[in-house]
């Protein structure tokens, strides 16, 4: 198991290196280069030369790359142009919001999707199966920002159950030891603050979690249906094992393999879906920060942010592969 994990980890190194080169070269291949991004189209040659020297843009590309990577491994992504603070600090602070949102979205998708897919898979063609099929179809076709608007209008503006924007009421001043607002409220014992943060979190989490919900439901349904027809399930039933034991030990455990994969892949994808959701709900996470950096042409943030999210995405996929090994001895020993 350990060698499996280490081998997968080693395979990551060329991918991450290639990725960093690609992102780095891309920013430099822009028309006008990063200095145009910094200064805009209208600038004097002297000013451009000054900025090029300040950012080391006048040195050979491979030197620039090596010095950039030398800093990146020390988690130094440069300084944000719009906030004039270290990019790594900005990313770390906002990533917690994105992580809270993504976590809540995946939780919603898993808690609803697996039971729904399971029931639908066990009872094909029943009303609940048909409902889940139509629902998951719609869930995939509705973009997060359209769904976000819909949820916001119905549940926040019309019914007033939840909040429309932000992470917490600005009037609430509470401590944030972890940066996850709901958890912070619970830890500090400030339950009203936790409840308020929860009310801000629900709608964005549902909007973001709907596509993974649709996909998890579909995959669970297909896997349960397939496994239910396997010989070993029939054997177990013929042996006289109770239905709940067969369900738990034979069907569920074997059907969970593809589901775990898809949960992992979706978690990675949510990190980019969160850009749109955070914009709709003004949820101050990494996504909306990246979106605003796009307009200020804050290239250190764009470059660092893409690199950071890609690394997280790759690591999540690695965890999925390793968990695959945990669930399935065949993968582990291959």
């Amino acid at each position: 198991m350990l060698t499996f994990a280490v081998r997968r980890l080693l395979l990551l190194i060329p991918i991450l290196l290639g990725l960093s080169i690609l992102v780095f070269l891309f920013v430099r291949a822009l028309p006008g280069g990063p200095e145009t991004a910094l200064l805009g189209e209208r600038s004097t040659p002297e000013r451009i030369a000054q900025v090029r020297a300040a950012y080391g843009l006048d040195r050979p590309v491979h030197e620039q790359y090596l010095s950039y990577m030398g800093k990146v491994v020390k988690l130094d992504f440069g300084t944000s142009i719009q906030t004039q603070r270290p990019v790594s600090e900005e990313i770390a602070r906002r990533f917690k919001a994105t992580l809270e949102l993504t976590g809540a979205a995946i939780l919603f998708a898993v808690l609803v999707g697996i039971p729904l897919g399971f029931v639908a898979g066990r009872r094909p063609q029943s009303w609940i199966d048909n409902l889940s099929t139509v629902g998951s179809l719609l869930g995939i076709a509705i973009p997060v920002f359209v769904l976000g608007y819909l949820l916001k209008y119905v549940f926040a503006i019309k019914l007033g159950w939840f909040e429309t924007t932000g992470r917490q009421n600005v009037a609430i001043s509470t401590e944030h030891p972890t940066g996850f607002f709901v958890l912070d409220g619970i830890i500090t014992g400030d339950l009203p603050a936790a409840w308020d943060a929860f009310k801000h979190l629900v709608l964005p989490a549902i909007a973001l979690g709907t596509i993974p919900l649709a996909i998890i439901t579909r995959i669970t349904r297909a896997a349960v249906q397939e496994v239910s027809n396997e010989d070993f399930v029939r054997t177990a039933e013929a042996k006289g094992m109770t239905k709940s034991v067969v369900t738990r030990r034979h069907i569920l455990r074997n059907a969970m393999l593809p589901v775990v994969t898809i949960i992992g892949l979706q978690t990675g994808l949510l990190l980019s879906g969160a850009i749109l959701t955070e914009t709709v709900f003004a949820f101050g996470g990494l996504g909306s920060f990246m979106a605003s950096s796009v307009f200020t042409r804050d290239f250190p943030v764009i470059q660092g942010g893409i690199l950071f999210i890609a690394v997280v995405f790759v690591l999540v996929n690695l965890l999925v592969d390793i968990s695959y090994g945990l669930f399935d001895p065949r993968v582990r020993n291959a």
Partner: peptide
């Protein structure tokens, strides 16, 4: 395929946003 792996390691929408933003 390694090139493909690298490109797939950036979530699609994020890649699109990055490219559209920089262009």
């Amino acid at each position: 395929m390694r090139l493909v792996d690298i490109m797939l390691s950036i979530p699609g929408l994020l890649l699109a946003i990055g490219i559209a933003a920089l262009l």
